[in-house]
Design a protein around this nucleic acid. Sequence first.
DNA 1: GGGGGAAGGACCA
DNA 2: TTCCTGGTCCTTCCCCC
Length: 899
Amino acid sequence: MESDEDLFDNSGDDEEDWKTTDWENSIKPKQEENVSSPQKHDISQVTDTSNENVAKFPENKQTDSLMTRMELNDHKAGMEGLDKAKINKIIYEASKGSRFYENEKKKEEQMKQRIEEQRKRLENISSEQLQQGLKEGDALLEALEDSFDLSRTIVHVDMDAFYAAVEMKDDPTLRHKPMAVGGMSMLSTSNYVARKFGVRAAMPGFIALKLCPDLVIVNSNFDKYRAVSKEIRAVMAEYDPNYCPMSLDEAYLDFTEHLILRQDFSEKDRTFLTKDCSSDDNTLCICDLNEHLRKSVILGHTDIVNESESVSHSNSDEAQNKTTSNVTIDDGIEEPVMISQNSSLFSDSSQLEKQMCDICPVCNKPYPPYDIRIFGKDIEEAVNEMRCRIEQRTRLTASAGIAPNMMLSKVCSDKNKPNGQYRILPTRDAIQTFIKDLPIRKISGIGKVTEQMLNALNVVSCTDLYEKRALLYHLYSDISFNYFMRICLGIGSTTVERDTERKSMSTERTFRDMSKPADLYEKCFELSEALVGDLKSEELKGKTVTLKIKTATFEVKTRAHTLRDYTWDQEIIFSTCKELLRTEIQNALPRPLVLRLMGVRMSNLLHQSLCPKSKQNTISSFIKKMVYKPLLTATTSGEHCTETIVINDDSCDNKQLQNQESENILNNISNTKSNISTFSSKLMKSTSPKKISPKKTSKTVIDPNKDSLQQLFSKASRFMCPVCNKEIQCTTLNEMNGHVEKCLISESTISSRLDNIQHKSVELPSVDLPLEKEKKPEGNCCVNVTMPDSRKSASNESKPCSSSMLHDVPRETTYVCPVCSLERVGCTLDEFNFHVDSCLSQGAIKEILKEQKNICTVNQNGLKKKRTDAIGSKAEPASKKRKSDGSNNTKSIDFFFKS
DNA sequence: GGGGGAAGGACCA
DNA sequence: TTCCTGGTCCTTCCCCC
Ligand SMILES: Nc1ncnc2c1ncn2[C@H]1C[C@H](O)[C@@H](COP(=O)(O)OP(=O)(O)OP(=O)(O)O)O1
Ligand SMILES: [Mg+2]
């Protein structure tokens, strides 16, 4: 979570009495200012008379204001009525000119372009098409209505300002101050006091401090949040053992079964002790009284107050104010919550005193005063009870939404935040009333981009989705259209299911700008190491390794490679990442690749016990096997081809393998444009001892002369073509490539030959490659950067090499070596290649083309359950893909309605 | 035309 | 001085069958 260095040092040098500080002095709008979202306002007012479907986008604002996408997002509880203009100005002043800001500007432009494209497509929709869209829309709506399910009672529970609340619980002095959790570069969340200043989650700490100079920023502590989360879930499980947790602080529950059972609950079953959780008195017990005391106090008493006879105690009003939360149902009726204070249970004060003196066996402190609260049997009461128990157990408040489906309950849980709940009655009327004017942005899955795209069509509320269905049908994909139609009807998933297996696992870090390849490789090593640890802790293996990078200019790229077999092997994962990273470093040349973030992700996961026995030998074992038997094997077998070079080498015969080649990724060999040699770069990696940092290894400069593939080939006189299966005479790698490529072009059915070539190999003359350093003649090949290119410089071959990365580098430029990071100004390309080659060379090349079978017979999907109901419960962005004319979307209805 | 991989992106907490 | 992290799903493009 925390970035490397910039965590905020909130040294407590302020001894001021915060409680007396007037935090009401927050950023509120001036009386006359309009606080509603400007674009929405504009759109509702301005409609093009020629085309009512097109909203005028707010014209380019003055250059000294914030672009839309960077404006304060006040769609969060506790952020109502802020002076957005003032806040946005502060954000703008703090951001303008930064690299982040510049990147956001780019994204804003892209979004505008998307909207413009949408507008153009809109213009091309004929009235006939609109009629058709209307028909399709109505047909879908009809089908949807038929499947409307109001039978379930779904509850969405969401803790209030979760991380912040945990921190405030542990440090009560924070309770009344504006505070946030995170660091100077990013906040995870803020408390409600801070929200009044515009401080919220996903805001950088340094900007938050500009909005609220008194803000206290606390470092996050995930272990703590996880522990609290466990407590919360324990309570939730009592109401729905199959509850679906969405994050540490949030879950969906299906209360339907509980409500049935609850009708037979005795009063005792619905009675709980409640103390004042906001008390700061640390001399008293703060444990959950329901853990130890409830049994003896309540279940031991048979004569507790009757539900129908609400006990009125002199303090009951006050108590109610303290402990009752804001409860409304959508018809606006406030339901009274019955509370009986503990003292009222006991007629004589001596008993009260006795009870007050009781000591908690856990913390050895006296119990605090408490109430005994009896909850009713209906849904509101049941949810109140659950929230109350969560609060008693964790001393944190939760809010809840109650509705017939997940989509609606999610919207509801935000309605009476914090410490409140809201219910939509399970009737079509109630749902329609609720949905009618609801802004689309309130729906989970509609974010700022989709909101803008739809706003541009004058779609602001959920009703607008219905009204504009004919257009939406043509402008969006089936999936998105379905999603929109479900929203406007108020339909969502009714099946609360725990997510099945995870789909990916990743780890990423932001750091100070980094460009030295050695540092980058080291970071890559650390990340893959961490990822492997995580995979093993969950006993998962994966097949697809993805490298994520974010450049210093905030450009994000991902590069993935799918392996043949499931793995959690650190060597393989790191090698794969490293290779992907190396390609990026090389692609950036002659500029250095400057990164601010790197991440490694593993997907295509399977539990270790279910993984088929690996076909993928570890590199070490492979080399150990092959080391005395130099050979060349090349096989085409599908998408991925592994190239390995094995050379009889002194260094690897008996002892440790200091350097070794690992699995390389070849461009799709059947793509005739690709050259088989373009990816024969190697991975510098030490296997023994296992954990040598890549920094160390990559800086080891070993004789460049000895690991030249070119040289290797110059000694090889014959090889077996993997395509035509003939023995070919050649002296250079490119000759071989040329031949293979020709074969590939003429070969229409590669696969039919796979069986023939899979196990063919040709022996090469063994190459003697001593490890000692030798001078490499200028103009010799560069193994790593581009083999074909270097071949070009070494021979008279005239075949152009499309894959060369250094080929077109102009003279007089500054080259930055991707390995040692030294700048080379004004040298020739050959000189530079030579230099890079030198840096990259590490010992002899040990392996020659090794075939990679790409026959993956494991059906990984067989074990995975396809999530058919993502929509309504998970993010569902609008798509760019539109319908082609006459497309049919008949399958989509079935597809999305399993409920 | 469907499946699967790769890349990008939206969205969520 | 400083704009996160970990996850899901969708779309587009490509290749292959
Ligand atoms: N962008 C984010 N990056 C990292 N962590 C986040 C981010 N947004 C939210 N979180 C974390 C911190 C939150 O406490 C926790 C729960 O999120 P969420 O429920 O949206 O807000 P919250 O619980 O802090 O406030 P509330 O629910 O009262 O609005 O998830
Ligand atoms: Mg929350």
